[in-house]
Computed example of a mutant assay.
Amino acid sequence: MLVWALLSAVLWSVARVGALRSSLFSKKGFVYGSIENPVKIYVKLHQDSPILFCMDVNRASKETVDPTYLWIGPNENTLTENGQINLTKEGALIVKDFMESLSGLYTCTLSYKTIKAETQEETTIKKRYDFLIFVNPFAPGWKSVCNDSIDCEDATNRNILEARDRIEEFFRSQAYILYHHFNKTIPAMHFVDHSFQVVRIDNCRPGFGKNEGLHSNCASCCVVCSPGTFSPDADVTCQICVSVHTYGAKACP
């Protein structure tokens, strides 16, 4: 019996922004903020995050006078440029080589001015945008298995199903050859059509799990375990551990 082990996830790909079907995603690949709720984003392990834009869609369509941007990371410290953090003058943020420890809340405060036409009085407006970024477990080397397929999960599934069909055909051919050419010297071999099946096993790598309540928009995703939870094995559930304060914990200290 061939076992089909599948890690389900919704993956970020700048080239396939439209597939996410959200008004928060522009055609240029930006992910805009939202005033009402945090924007949840799922990033491949060791890949770059999407381009997070410190502005909502409505504000982006209007003139913004003297904008300034302040980004705060998961550790509640102000983000500055480094090897993993890329900040642009337009207020955009890209986190490179994303890891479990980089998961969490990213907050940006946009400050800009409004000017009354009658009095020329200036007023400073501030808006806060929250982005919750979670890493999923598609690690380096995954793309090479799929020959750089746009949808690696679909490509892997097709490869597994093709392997099943080839193994089934092998047994069918062997049964035919043994029966017609070697039936006098070798015991007969019988193959029952459709008796060979592929079984799907739902699992996540250690440090990851599924949580339909927390990730309702990505219920089938293997998502990094949040602080206060851990996953020591390939189960799909992050277990509770109050002493864990990091993302992606594999043990309860």
Score class of each variant (00 low, 15 high):
V39W: 07
S49K: 07
V43W: 05
E63V: 08
R59A: 09
S61C: 01
S61V: 01
I35D: 13
R59K: 13
K44S: 11
I41W: 03
N58T: 11
M55P: 00
R59V: 05
K40Q: 15
P50N: 09
I35Y: 02
K62A: 08
E36F: 04
N58Y: 04
S49N: 06
N37K: 15
K62M: 09
N37T: 12
S49T: 11
P38T: 10
I51M: 11
P50F: 06
D48H: 08
Q47P: 03
E36R: 12
E36M: 04
A60F: 04
V39F: 06
H46E: 15
I41E: 06
D48C: 03
N58P: 00
Q47V: 02
I35Q: 13
E36I: 07
G33R: 00
A60C: 05
Y42V: 02
Q47S: 15
G33W: 00
F53A: 15
I35H: 05
C54D: 09
K44E: 12
Y42Q: 06
P50R: 10
E36C: 01
S34M: 02
G33C: 01
M55R: 09
I41A: 05
G33Q: 00
V39T: 15
S49W: 03
K40S: 14
Q47G: 05
K62E: 14
L45N: 15
L52P: 15
S34G: 06
V57Q: 12
K40I: 05
S34V: 00
G33L: 00
V43Y: 09
Y42P: 09
S34Y: 00
S49H: 04
L52Q: 09
Y42L: 05
A60M: 04
I51N: 11
L45D: 15
K62D: 11
F53E: 13
